[in-house]
Amino acid sequence: MVNWFWKRKPQRRSLALRSRGDSGDTTRVDFAELAPELHRFLGQAAYLQLGYFETLTRGIRGTLELSRKEALSRAAGAALDKHRGIVAVITEHGDDPTEVMLPFRENLDAFRRKTIGARPEETLLAVYLTAGMLDDFYLALASSYGEIGERVAAILREGDGGSEIVSIIQETIESDNEWRSLLSMWGRRLVGDTLLVCRGALRPERLDADETRIEPVYTELMGAHARRMDAMGLAS
């Protein structure tokens, strides 16, 4: 008998956010009424990774430099592996992954279009930064779903090819210092739209009443974003 996971009795949840590589204290926020249903969490997480794969694949086609093609192919492969891993979790619980992801396609495609820059380097920076923020957010949410959440967290922690993109961005900055200010400005512009995706991942019917519960999480996400920017030599 299939145990339909979205029909299970909801548990009291707390969201714990930890920047990757940080073994210190975590920020915990009570999300008993804000954390999404499991199928909503899985559907969005899976479709986001599919979108990153598509964007990076387009980047491969759009570059002539072989070393860059290879670097982007590794990053794209990592995103596809994450997508497949989450899809496997959905399938194992008796649901159709396409049906689970479909409700979020329109909004997440719109988000992805907003983060495609006028230049390939801007798009690569967008993939690196938005994937970092959203992986952090979904890693935090994963702690709400027991064993299934642990599996998704393990998938999200797998290598993401981010170092490949960082190398390309740093080479770009070193080639012409004007890139530094341009990419710094672009990186700052990405924050608002990415936080809206985080907000949209939660239960919409309670957000207005419980908005203050999310603020500490936003603060942590923005702090991790600033550290990524600083590590690349970009002003945040």
Rank of each mutant, 00 (worst) to 15 (best):
K7M: 13
R12M: 11
R13G: 07
S14Q: 11
S14T: 14
L15C: 08
L17G: 03
R18A: 13
R18V: 09
S19K: 05
R20A: 12
G21K: 01
D25M: 08
T26K: 09
R28D: 05
R28I: 08
D30T: 04
H39T: 15
G43V: 03
Q44W: 00
Q44Y: 01
A46V: 07
Y47R: 06
Y47L: 09
Y52E: 15
E54V: 15
T55A: 15
T57K: 12
R58F: 10
I60Q: 11
R61I: 08
L64S: 14
E65Q: 14
R68I: 11
E70M: 11
A71I: 09
A75I: 02
A76K: 02
D81N: 09
H83W: 02
R84C: 06
A88I: 01
I90S: 07
T91L: 15
H93N: 14
T98G: 11
V100K: 04
R105E: 15
D109R: 13
A110W: 10
A110R: 12
R113M: 11
T115C: 12
E121Y: 05
E121W: 03
A126I: 10
L134S: 03
D135K: 07
G146P: 03
R151F: 02
R151W: 02
V152I: 06
A154W: 01
G159I: 07
E164R: 04
I168A: 11
I169L: 07
Q170I: 08
Q170S: 07
E174K: 11
E174V: 04
E178K: 07
S181P: 01
R188G: 14
D193L: 02
L195W: 06
L196K: 11
C198L: 00
P204A: 12
L207C: 05
L207G: 03
E211G: 00
T212M: 10
V217N: 00
D230Y: 07
A231D: 13
L234W: 00
